[in-house]
Design a protein around this nucleic acid. Structure first.
Length: 425
RNA sequence: GUGGGAGUAGCUCAACUGGCAGAGCACCGGACUGUGGCUCCGACGGUUGCGGGUUCGAUUCCCGUCUCCCACCCCA
């Protein structure tokens, strides 16, 4: 038997209804904040990711699905292509390619699959779905303002509330401007140098390759060392510190709760200044439900114009997982099940169905070969509100038997009044 | 990529130390010719994840492999 490959899965009804519910709510919220949808290709030039996400990151160094495309001519080598492991790079590429800076501030959102070749576990898949958004544009359009950071965070809290997700925590940090980062990295290396030999091998490796990531170390024995390390907050220059202050002030004024977490660092190279993460208790070890941050230099590093920006990505798989409502609750059940009774009645049933569906009713059809008992059973099993009996008697009199399956009450309704009666539930 | 656990009917799970692969629910049909939910009866349902090995005999023991789950790494 051919099976779905490792780390991929089928989303079947009724769970799929939950995904649609989430996406509809998300689009609704984005509309209120004047975001507009963008779709970018699911594969791109490999360099787009290595240059933005960072050559040294796990994502680029070992998790990408990359292949050599065929060239046009037999002799051509073709180019290296990659299934997108995240969507910010693609959005920024599109921003540059279509000269969106000419339109002022861009507020874009996307929903779609991403691909990373990691070992699957709960809440982690090789094809997973992200809902994300980006605000970027010329600094003169306000893209750099702390108001944008706050707007993004406030939007997210609205979205989670709207979906009825309880028990989330917003972790907030600033990882500094480019200058701060350089100074801070230097200080970190200096502080780590005498002590790193005592650390877990894995943490040691980070101390060398990317000192910031030492803060992600979870080995208990290393915690005392980590606690004593200098913090980025001590290295922020004045504009950067003020920017972060203002983000916090706006959040307080709109009533969005957050926790400062100066150990929150993020894995992608392009992040600067504001970094954040929303966690949720019900997700096990993969408790990051969404994350994001500012990326003021990304556009330029991809050869584009200056376009400071901030964005986030929600793990849709994890978001759906944390929803408490059952999938059944959001599935729309049939309003009426039509039971054609006796030879030749399928034709009549089809006409009835057509009429009722035009009134925006959800209609399911039986078959003239079914016994009435079977039709009623099926109708009840599907959760249909009504059963409509279409037999010889009804056809000749023009008056149909309409049965409410919840109460068992049955009425005779003239053909013209059927849709109206069913709608009045 | 590393460590641990688990794969038996559509679903949830049994099967003693190696001895005829089972139950509940679901599904289908009947009792009941145009009236569902309750009840009763019956039928269907399996390469025991896959491949090899040991054995008279393997769901059970051994090896390999695949998938899922938990954790690490990392991230959404």
């Amino acid at each position: 038997m051919i099976k779905a490959i490792r780390g991929t899965r089928d989303l079947l009804p009724p769970e799929m209804a939950l995904w649609n519910f989430v996406e509809a709510a998300v689009r609704d919220v984005f509309r209120a904040y004047n975001f507009h949808e963008i779709r970018t290709p699911i594969f791109e030039d490999t360099q787009l990711f290595s240059r933005s996400v960072g050559e040294e990151t796990d994502i680029v160094s070992k998790e990408m699905y990359t292949w050599q495309d065929q060239g046009r001519a037999q002799s051509d080598k073709g180019q290296s292509l990659t299934l997108r492991p995240e969507n910010t790079a693609g959005v920024v590429r599109a921003y540059i390619e279509h000269n969106l800076q000419a339109r002022g501030l861009s507020k874009l959102y996307y929903i779609g699959p991403q691909f990373r070749r990691e070992r699957p576990q709960k809440g982690r898949y090789r094809q997973f779905y992200q809902i994300g958004a980006e605000i970027l544009g010329p600094a003169t359009a306000g893209s750099e303002s702390p108001a944008r950071d706050a707007e993004i965070l406030e939007l997210l809290s609205t979205l989670l509330d709207r979906l009825g997700i309880k028990g989330w925590t917003l972790h907030l940090n600033s990882i500094g401007c480019a200058n701060d980062r350089a100074k801070y990295n230097e200080a970190l290396r200096k502080a780590l140098d005498p002590v790193k030999d005592k650390m877990d091998p894995d943490c040691q490796r980070r101390a060398v390759t990317n000192p910031l990531r030492v803060f992600d170390c979870k080995v208990p024995e290393d915690q005392p060392i980590i606690e004593k390390l200098p913090r980025i907050s001590e290295f922020l220059d004045e504009p950067c510190r003020q920017h972060f202050e203002q983000v916090q002030e706006i959040l307080k004024s709109v009533g969005v709760e957050f926790e400062l977490n100066d150990r929150l660092v993020r894995g992608l190279d392009y992040y600067t200044r504001t970094a954040f993460e929303f966690t949720h208790g019900a997700l096990g070890a993969q408790n990051a439900m969404l994350g994001g941050g500012r990326y003021d230099g990304l556009s330029e590093s991809l050869g584009g114009p200056p376009a400071p920006g901030i964005g986030f990505a929600i793990g849709e798989d994890r978001l759906v997982m944390s929803l408490t409502e059952s999938a059944e609750a959001v599935v729309r059940k049939p309003d009426v099940y039509i039971a054609p009774l006796g030879p030749g009645m399928n034709k009549e049933a089809a006409r009835l169905a057509r009429e009722l569906r035009r009134h925006d009713l959800v209609v399911e059809l039986g078959d003239e070969s079914f016994r009435l008992k079977k039709s009623l059973e099926t109708a009840a099993k599907l959760g249909s509100e009504y059963a409509l009996i279409a037999g010889e008697n009804e056809l000749s009199t023009g008056v149909f038997a309409l049965k409410n399956l919840a109460t068992g009450e049955q009425k005779s309704i003239a053909r013209d009044a059927l849709a109206q009666t069913i709608q009045r539930m």
